[in-house]
Design a binder for these strands. Structure first.
Lengths: 130, 130, 130, 130
DNA sequence: GTGGTCTAGACCACT
DNA sequence: GTGGTCTAGACCACT
């Protein structure tokens, strides 16, 4: 994972998004512990406070539960719930893109073509890594 | 246009995006004047300084030219250039959506389905307004 | 003459500089009339008020005298005086350049070389026009 | 450094010029931090916003990088680049001086003499400070 | 009227 | 503490 410090999305939300996606992807499974604040902070080169806020965000979403002195655990039904939330986030990005295209009066065909192109490029990219 | 004061995107960039799209859409044509700082500020209920930052951004992109004491003008080749920039922005949204979907291990079919659904919903919305 | 609307020097001062140089150069001679406000404003594509301010500046410097209902005249000893002032302005530009070079710790040789180069380029330019 | 509030050059550009020269001179070296917005604002007795505009300008020139909550840093290749930009600025001053001299029909010898004289005076000045 | 610059002071995200 | 954004309001040059 890479943090983008120039993004307008606050870093703590970028981290929360990342963990949420990891839970959705099954990287972290229910009842497993998540990386500690300090571990993750070191890895991402951010302040532990920032990671802390990300975890707070996830607790608010009931994806994560903290047990004092023990650590942070993935909640029971978290995977399901995280998948739903991630999917909503994906949709939100698409909606923004389509709206921006409509506002600029790009033709529907053009907008779909832009999507296809992005799709192909990202697919090609993913293939290469394999 | 509506400003979202809670967005992570700064207001001045929201305004710049909006004007860029309007130029791309042909709402403002080359050599025409754009709304004055004060007029637009009143309309959007923001401070004139904030509108000015938006226009500065567009001037840096060579979409707009300012003439002291006269007003702001759409630059010569602005429409073309604005369209290219708006399309790049659309693509960026789509890329973010696709990446987020891949990170959450949504299946390619799922991701495409999310796009189709968003597309249909926004289209239906647009129809209704007609 | 060309006005540079993007210069930080106000337009009225650019105009005053231009007329002062013209008087120093002998383009306008003592007792001759200067172009009228409207004529010059049309030629430079600026507002007559702006030309007016330039003339006021020159009157303050006693290079120009206005006679109501008649026009503006070059003052008696104007050429001499304008030459002195123009020379002071030239010097001021050079001082700024040298100071900026020293601040950036360019070597004295480097600074002189920059001057020589600018000199040659402007000379070549002047030759070509001949 | 001294700000000239009566100059036609906006304060924020005076500050940007000053910092650029300091980077060119090696006063601030790559990866080092620059004075914070508030510190420099206090020192120069200007508003922090004004200092920020200066730093924005330098960031646009890729001489400076900002990290939220951390500080401002001199960019990697900044010294080289700053030196080139400062030299261009020096040249610009000289060009203006030469052009003004030509416009006033000062003889080439006269113009060069003015440069020599300014050079000697500034050198003498520099010596005295030693 | 128009755009450009500046101050004073606030609040936010991040260290 | 740090940088980034925003408001309210002033004054300037120019039309």
């Amino acid at each position: 994972m890479r943090i983008d410090p120039n993004s307008h999305v606050p870093i703590y939300l970028q981290i929360a998004d990342y963990i949420r996606e990891a839970i959705a992807a099954g990287v972290y499974r229910p009842k497993e512990t998540l990386p500690s604040l300090r571990t993750l902070a070191l890895e991402l080169v951010v302040n532990p406070n920032t990671v802390q806020r990300a975890y707070e965000e996830l607790e608010r979403e009931h994806l994560v539960r903290s047990r004092k002195g023990v650590g942070l655990f993935v909640a029971g039904e978290a995977a399901e719930s995280a998948r739903a939330k991630s999917q909503a986030a994906v949709r939100e990005h698409f909606v923004r893109g389509i709206r921006a295209g409509q506002a600029a009066r790009l033709s529907p065909e053009r907008i779909r073509a832009v999507f296809q192109e992005a799709w192909r490029d990202l697919h090609a990219e993913a293939e290469q890594r394999t």
